[in-house]
Design a protein around this nucleic acid. Sequence first.
DNA 1: GTCTATACGGTGATAGAC
DNA 2: GTCTATCACCGTATAGAC
Lengths: 210, 210
Amino acid sequence: MANRNLKENKDTEKLILDAAREVFIRKGFDGARMQEIADEAGINKALLHYYFRSKQKLFDTIFLEAFKDFWPSIESSTNNGKGTVKDLIKSAVDAYMDLLLKMPFLPSFVVGEINRSPERIQELLQASGIRPDFVLEVIKRGIEKREVIAIDPRDLIINIVGLSLFPFISRPVLSRMFFASEEEYMEFLASRRNSVYEFVCRSVLVEYQS
Amino acid sequence: MANRNLKENKDTEKLILDAAREVFIRKGFDGARMQEIADEAGINKALLHYYFRSKQKLFDTIFLEAFKDFWPSIESSTNNGKGTVKDLIKSAVDAYMDLLLKMPFLPSFVVGEINRSPERIQELLQASGIRPDFVLEVIKRGIEKREVIAIDPRDLIINIVGLSLFPFISRPVLSRMFFASEEEYMEFLASRRNSVYEFVCRSVLVEYQS
DNA sequence: GTCTATACGGTGATAGAC
DNA sequence: GTCTATCACCGTATAGAC
């Protein structure tokens, strides 16, 4: 029956994508094995090639999806450019924390693969539809309104993102260096939702009282 | 002649290590090919296995060396625990900038490989002899002396390191997103030697005038 | 120490039955 | 759509001559 085939079709495709995401994110493109993805999905290698022509195509699908997640919906919180920078900082840090506490390995994956083939960035940025202009605009206005000190808006954005992502990217090292257990480190990461926010506000907001 | 053999020996080993460093850092363990390392060194594959038993052993040598670089000699600048936190911030940022402007791909390499085999962190930290205690101590004293606001010393360290490393780790993306050319981005990176320093000082030093 | 030649296992991809 | 069987290739590692 056509209906059943369609349903099976979608189920299998989702099975494959879930498995591929898991394996690619953990091992990277070079380290991932089609066999392992097939096992994880509970099917066989041949079927992978039936749905996606090659390892590369399958990987591209996963990677674009992961890349899009990387610029969380901060824009919406900018209130069409009318919001304050203080709000922007809060919602950016929150957005990253929400994302990363759920998918802690996402940043190392994206960063690692991008460094292995930087040529593709151009098309990736285009395909992902990421546009930093809104955020830059909000910051510029904040500076004009004397809400924020004079600072290169790009510095501010990069600092916010960096402070949010870095502890996840370097998790294995930092965890071992400064903490007794993984659980303790997870608590620490969660606490940074506030501490990063305050750290940035103290540095760039003209008037800020914690 | 024994002397000549010895000399050749050291030269070849260095040739191999230089080539391996180059290839491993760019491609990672999984992406690197022994053939490519041999070509880069101007020798053949068999000789690689003669000097280092396996790809893994060769990699381990390179990786430990890279890992050690990751905790630059900040300790020395702490003046045996008598220096100020302000000085600590400055020398930490400077140390990372000096290192990274010379070896921009080091952080992505270390971070990527660590995430692929986190089990080895323990021995790596031990073998590298990295000890964050000194730095933590300096910060604690800074807080007691009211030079620094009340802050988790681990947060402060991680923030300093993160702000220094992140723009290098995410270089391909950030470069494309915010800058017109690689050269422009390099200038931006260099300028962060000051802007990161000031960003941190404004946030955590009790009295700070730029 | 350095080379050429080769063994050996694994990996992406396809053919073809059901 | 899904499977089994198989191919063609590549990459690490070793053997053995010089």
